[in-house]
Design a binder for these strands. Structure first.
Lengths: 202, 202
DNA sequence: GTCTATATGTGGATAGAC
DNA sequence: GTCTATCCACATATAGAC
């Protein structure tokens, strides 16, 4: 009956790793840090993970499955615009932390460089899943865009702008570049739909 | 007369650091690596730099002054479109390496996290200088944009799209996201100028 | 100014008691 | 399954001869 505590500890370690990797980066976070944050003795860590890289892998995988669960809940709501709005609110609420610590996926992706291929692939999966979710929103509003609009490219651009914006924001210690990037993206979409409507009106 | 070799060695170290930090990242590059690449004995490194961070600082500063020199040469050419084109060609020629190793400034910016404030500020200066150069190009073509167009925001967006695109390209090991991002940016600018011209024609 | 040899500290990882 | 004590490798940094 006490046996069920084991996975719970593992989970605590993964969560602690997620927090610390995000706030201080992978390299600057020691196993001792993680163990301390999770309130687990250092030696015990190796019962759950063979190496530090394995923790990284587990953490990125956790993020991916969390996102998938979140997305599943999203998809239940019928309205695409509503979904997109709730998503935008989510990131806007995080603006400050984004400006300070960047994107938890993007930062890791650049920090790990060549390191562990398994981790890199899961990071890529995270990006792919995110783009797919946004693409779904655009797709459902497809009739508002000109015929032949590449919604995949548009969804990718959305992630691109946010990642690029967050990177500059963090480097400048100023949220401005992020906000202005998002604003420009909004205008781009306005221009697209506007151009379409004008053509329809003609 | 042999005394003038000293600064030359220092320069070799900085160049070696630039290459290695770019290809393997800051943390994974050891001082021994740098000394080896520069063909300088390890112990000698400390004659030129007090710490590893100091090398990072010198390297980022070097990049900044190199860019400023390049920009000065650019500005000599009168035509803004010509300048922008030569710049675009420069990055397009680097597409493959960008997809593999990312942006040398952006990667460092995310890797160093909180680490050294001095380095972070110089990285920010690099971004600022780059945006200013691009902004100059847009500014000279200002009459092609609708009145009140925020060229600063447009220049920032250009960097944003490239950084975001390169980040995804590197993570996916596929240049596609970068190329598509740049293409979307081009369309955005097309839409802007087009909208302007249509209004002028009316 | 240049370089060898080495100190020092840190952090990932293991052995083995409980 | 849990945890303490410790090993060991490695990377930064220094001491000091030349």
């Amino acid at each position: 009956m006490v046996a069920k505590q084991a996975p719970e500890k593992r989970r605590r370690l993964v969560d602690a790793a997620a927090t610390l990797f995000y706030e201080q980066g992978f390299n600057r976070t020691t196993l001792a840090d993680i163990a301390g944050e999770a309130d687990v003795p250092l030696g015990n860590v190796y019962y759950y993970f063979k190496t530090k890289d394995a923790i990284g892998e587990a953490m990125v995988e956790q993020r991916l499955s969390d996102f998938r669960a979140l997305r599943a809940r999203w998809e239940e709501r019928g309205d695409a615009r509503d979904r997109l709005r709730s998503f935008v609110r989510m990131t806007v609420d995080n603006r400050r932390q984004l400006a300070r610590s960047g994107c938890p996926i993007g930062s890791l992706a650049l920090e790990l460089h060549e390191a562990d291929p398994a981790v890199r692939e899961r990071l890529a999966e995270n990006f792919t899943a995110w783009v797919a979710a946004v693409r779904g929103c655009y797709e459902e509003a497809e009739e508002r865009f000109p015929a032949g609009t590449d919604v995949q490219a548009l969804a990718e651009l959305t992630l691109t702008v946010m990642e690029g914006g967050v990177m500059q924001a963090r480097t400048h210690r100023d949220i401005g570049p992020f906000d202005r990037g998002v604003e420009q993206l909004r205008r781009h979409i306005d221009l697209l739909t506007q151009a379409h409507e004008e053509r329809n009106a003609a």
